[in-house]
Nucleic acid binder design. Structure first.
Lengths: 253, 253
DNA sequence: AAACATAGTGTATTATTGACACAATTGTAA
DNA sequence: TTACAATTGTGTCAATAATACACTATGTTT
């Protein structure tokens, strides 16, 4: 926990460098051992959990701010990021870092301000991430999406909205390049979809549909070492993948 | 155009009441005589065009702010509003009301600030709208979507993004209740879809699909007076409509 | 070598979509 | 009054896509 002096310094620094009343929160999705993971921070003392986030520098594009925040929490650059919603209820930031609320008079205290937060979701390769806590957190770890701790503020709602947005995305855009390692098998990719959607899919139909998108290329190699028949390895055909990202799979009209 | 005194007053008032650095811009879609219309404001003097917009009061939810702005421009309450994107490039507001840029020193001048703008699109019944200019505009009028004047700032990009979001919405949500009068014919509804999508649809297939959604009810009455066979009148079955809005038409997974 | 778990491939059935034809209705022009 | 043009209501057939399922292949385990 910050001392009064540290808090004071943080606040005056923040006021000088960041846009007031605006924050960024990121829902970082990863995929590991068949489970959907979300990156969470645990507050120093208190022990409460919250989403990685930060503020926007006065002359910084908001996308850059989101990337900067994520770089700090994950070590990664060029993360797949999708802005999905702004949460602007005046009540939402009422309990923002409330242990610091009384340490400074409101007019000097960054954390008593109202914040609109811009929600981003990020898709990352679990294995490349080096979770790093921020200044206010004791820990930064992956949590199972279906076994989340209680979250501070409206972060549970933000997470839910992000998940809805991600599920919607599945219907008109490819997904997976950012969540899977370079090479993967069809069953592994299927598992990703099943995890996001939280439902079982038919193996054969999944493969047919997926290949139909034309964004995969099959390697000659097989994934050896598994306990059964060795599956083929696939990777994404990046050109087609990006084209599909941009154009979207055709809608229904 | 505001005098220096008026501007000064406006700015000090704004600084006192609004959240700094945050604005709202609304793309108001209407449908009239087979054409998609967008509500635009024309700047006093200058003559340039821009989207209806405004600012967020310090304790006001952003949705309320958007509704307030639209109430002022259209006279309507309870407008169908959809937040679709935040535009946060630091360069985007560089030419914001630039005729006022030099009238006040930057530190006092609200319009030299950087603004993130939250984009909303609205769907309204053309015939219920009473377009009203704001303090900075000489005029507030409906413009044809496919015959737009040049727009100030990044408003052309905002409009384009709104249209994309609207088109996306067609794929998983019903639309029309907010854009059509109470009663309408199937060809009229089809025209709306064709206009939004900017493509011709097959009459018979459109009807089958539309009825399949189960959100329409057919009146016993016909629309008389047209020059040809009188079509049936339909209206939306509001309960089912709202359920479909909430649940969405099923995706493809 | 047999048992087993998982992967690859294919096929029959059903549902959805797309393309199109025809009859009915209404105002207009001959 | 009648023929005509334009438009609406309805239906059908074929193509396509989605779903459900079966069989074979491969590698591990015993």
């Amino acid at each position: 926990m910050l001392t009064k002096k540290e808090l004071k310094e943080y606040c005056s620094n923040a006021r000088e460098n960041y846009l007031p009343h605006i924050s960024i929160d990121c829902v970082v999705f990863g995929f590991h051992e068949g489970l959907m993971k979300v990156l969470l921070l645990q507050i120093k003392n208190g022990g409460e959990w919250y989403l990685p986030g930060g503020f926007v520098l006065k002359k910084e594009p908001i996308e850059t701010a989101a990337n900067r925040v994520l770089k700090e929490r994950t070590g990664l650059n060029n993360i797949f990021l999708q802005q999905f919603h702004v949460f602007g209820d005046p009540e939402r930031s009422k309990q923002h870092f409330d242990m610091y609320k009384d340490m400074l008079p409101a007019k000097d205290n960054w954390f008593t301000n109202r914040f609109l937060t811009i929600g981003y979701y990020a898709l990352v390769d679990f294995y490349n991430v080096n979770p790093a806590p921020d200044q206010f957190s004791a820990d930064c770890i992956w949590c199972d999406l279906n076994n989340l701790p209680e979250l501070k503020l409206d972060h549970a709602a933000i997470l839910k909205t992000a998940l809805d947005a991600l599920r919607l995305q599945l219907n008109y855009q490819p997904i997976g390049y950012n969540l899977m390692p370079k090479e993967f098998t069809m069953p592994e990719l299927q598992k990703l979809y099943e995890t996001i959607l939280d439902e079982k899919l038919d193996r054969r139909n999944f493969q047919r549909r997926m290949l139909g998108f034309g964004i995969l290329k099959r390697s000659e190699q097989l994934r050896r070492g598994g306990a059964h028949k060795a599956p083929y390895l696939y990777s994404f055909e990046l050109e087609n993948y990006n084209a599909a990202l941009k154009e979207g799979f055709k809608g229904r009209w």
